[in-house]
């Protein structure tokens, strides 16, 4: 694999300052996504997964927010040395974002044809008529029936699933290198969720786009991702190939999450709850952030933060845990 990755982020930090208090929402996150690959960024609320996505998109350039990273490259372009204007031109064309709530992401007073067409007119300089024709093609692509007649409809005239399809259409319109999907199916019903996940996966295969999927749902991550990165309290605690990570989690947090999720096929198994609650981003414990809730925690966990290091398996797995060896050997906690 000599091709350079689509997205490469090293040591990303995001700090919010409000009323003199600093909140470190993201503390040193590395992300790499290859072409045509889906990486799921998995975490609970407050873990910093959405902030990471916004930082990558460059949507956090505002007072009170400090974003810094050692490396930030998108398809060979260096995002760090780029001017704000150049970066703005990339948004919507080279990297795009699918939001969770389609109704608030779409403009209610513009027809969907105008909104999709705007992408072509602004980024590609197409005429109104050409833009409209391309919009119809896109609506077709994402499976909206009778696309040509619905192009003039407004967002409220579509159902929730259809609106999410329109967002996906807008995200793939200019054939981006990277699609960031931030909880794209959380607001949808189960049967519609399956349709949207399949759509994103199909477009990824057909167009060869890289996808960064932000989700809190272990099931959703398992369904579509090649690699999974698990976030806890602003840091990655583990990452690896989806199958390996689910089969044999290397971090106690991942293992605990998997045990806490009810399994449709094994209903009689008990749910193993994780005691306590995730730490607030404002007050993270020293040492390992998960130590206060971890069954394996020892003295070293409370004092020294484990670094995210590659595991010996040679399959690109990383974990940040002092007890990773016991985890992989399956020693009881």
């Amino acid at each position: 694999m000599s091709e350079s990755p689509v997205l490469e982020i090293r040591d990303l930090h995001v700090t919010f300052t409000a009323r003199g208090r600093e909140i470190h929402a993201v503390r040193g996150v590395d992300l790499t996504i290859e072409r045509g690959q889906t990486l799921a960024l998995l975490g609970e609320s407050g873990s910093g997964k959405s902030v990471t996505a916004k930082a990558v998109m460059g949507l956090l350039d505002q007072p009170g927010v400090e974003v810094r990273s050692a490396v930030a490259r998108l398809g060979g372009r260096d995002l760090l040395t780029m001017s704000a204007e150049e970066r703005r031109a990339l948004r919507g064309s080279a990297m795009t974002l699918v939001f969770q709530d389609a109704l608030s992401a779409l403009n209610p007073v513009l027809s969907v044809g105008d909104q999709i067409g705007e992408l072509f007119r602004v980024h590609r300089g197409l005429s109104r008529k050409e833009a409209r024709a391309r919009s119809v093609e896109l609506l077709d692509l994402v499976g909206i029936p009778a696309a040509a007649t619905r192009i003039g409809d407004y967002p409220h005239q579509f159902s929730g699933g259809m609106r999410q399809r329109i967002l996906v259409a807008m995200a793939v319109a200019l054939e981006p290198d990277l699609i960031i999907a931030d909880e794209p199916t959380t607001a949808l019903d189960v049967t519609v969720q399956a349709q949207i996940l399949e759509l994103i996966d199909r477009l990824r295969r057909e167009l060869g786009t890289a996808v960064l999927l932000i989700t809190h749902d272990l099931g959703v991550a398992a369904e579509v991702s090649d690699r999974v990165a698990v976030m806890y309290a602003g840091r990655l605690v583990e990452s690896g190939q989806a199958e390996e990570l689910y089969d044999l989690p290397a971090h106690p947090y991942t293992a605990a999450l998997l045990a806490a999720v009810p399994d449709l096929d094994r209903p009689a198994s008990e749910l193993r709850a994780i005691p306590g609650a995730p730490p607030s981003p404002a007050t993270t414990p020293p040492g390992c952030s998960f130590a206060p809730r971890c069954g394996r925690a020892s003295d070293v966990c409370a004092s020294t933060r484990p670094a995210l290091v590659p595991l010996e398996s040679g399959t690109g797995r990383y974990a940040a845990c002092h007890h990773v060896k016991e985890m992989l050997d399956g020693a009881p906690a």
Partner: peptide, 8 residues
């Protein structure tokens, strides 16, 4: 349609 937490 329910997503299963099993990549396999």
């Amino acid at each position: 349609a329910a997503p299963a937490a099993k990549p396999r």
